[in-house]
């Protein structure tokens, strides 16, 4: 009898703790939505920031964030795809396969600030790209590469064995297998990975902090050697100012916009991943 009582207690405790965790995140969302919601209106999306962020909107910041993440994904995707195919299709030695896999996972763990610093040293100084959109794109591309690659790799590995057996029976070459079986069937994996990579790039601040962005005076870049304003760094600067309530509201507003952007990308990726698993369950 007491045991049943104890168990109910423990279970209630577990549920309570889970509920508390959910509550924390509900609080996080509510806080951002309430504090940032007031700043959102058409002008916030269409106007440029004025008075050091106290007035106007975040038009160029949004464009900058989009430019950086799209550039990074466009550059990171072919590299990630090649990495995934190389590992799954072109390497046969299991030891090498394991090693490469661990390398990708390790790369995924590298603190982003290090990508920023070393990336700036290499691309910005050694290759002469300076503080620019280009440097930011290159750094972010490397940063999101493992995110995309892991996703693609998982999709390829989820490919049912029969497909390959059938291909073997038909005597297809590796290239033919890749072109007619692997690529078409892991399309959802590619899309999912790219979306997650975009989300990761959009949420990143430390790596682009002093390598790619500008606080004031920058608009839509005319060349790749121009720095861009971004939502992330804009929030960082505004967050350190606490006296002007308009500035603070705009910081939260920009945070809300960024959060919505990242959430929609991840939500989309979840939808595509759902498609992926459905395909193989059929």
């Amino acid at each position: 009898m007491t045991r049943g009582f104890l168990e109910k207690g423990v279970l209630a405790g577990l549920v309570f703790m889970t509920g508390f965790a959910v509550f924390i995140f509900a609080l996080v969302l509510a806080e951002v939505a309430v504090r940032g919601g007031g700043a959102l209106n058409a002008g916030f999306f269409l106007e440029e920031a004025r008075d050091f962020g106290a007035a106007g909107g975040v038009r160029y910041q949004m464009e900058g964030t989009l430019l950086l993440m799209v550039g990074a994904a466009a550059l990171g995707l072919p590299l990630a795809l090649a990495g995934a195919l190389f590992q799954t299709e072109y390497v046969d030695a299991p030891g090498l396969k394991r090693g490469l896999r661990l390398l990708v996972y390790s790369m995924n763990g590298v603190p982003t600030i290090l990508f920023g610093l070393l990336g700036y040293l290499f691309f910005g100084i050694t290759l002469g790209a300076g503080v620019s959109w280009l440097t930011g794109v290159l750094i972010l591309a490397i940063m999101i590469l493992p995110t995309i690659q892991v996703s693609v790799q998982e999709a390829i590995e989820a490919l049912p064995e029969q497909y390959r057996e059938a291909a073997g029976a038909l005597g297809l070459s590796r290239w033919q297998v890749v072109r007619s079986i692997v690529l078409p069937h892991c399309l959802y994996g590619i899309v999912t990975g790219t979306l997650l990579g975009l989300a990761r790039a959009a949420g990143e601040t430390a790596a682009i902090l002093f390598t790619a962005t500008a606080f004031s005076g920058a608009r839509f870049p005319e060349a790749m050697s121009d720095p861009v304003p971004t939502l992330q760094t804009h929030i960082l600067v505004l967050a350190q100012e606490a006296l002007n309530p308009r500035t603070i509201e705009n910081a939260w507003g920009a945070g809300l916009v960024l959060l919505c952007l990242v959430f929609s990308l991840i939500a989309l990726s979840l939808v595509f991943r759902g498609r992926l698993s459905m395909e193989f369950e059929r």
């Binding site: 996080v28 949420g203 960082l236 959430f263 990308l265 991840i266 939500a267």
Partner: peptide, 21 residues
């Protein structure tokens, strides 16, 4: 799925929450 969404909340948003709240 919800956890995956929350795992994606940008660090700068947490920074804002840290400073402000």
């Amino acid at each position: 799925s919800l956890m995956e969404l929350f795992a994606g909340v940008p660090g700068i948003v947490y920074g804002l929450l840290g400073v402000g709240v």
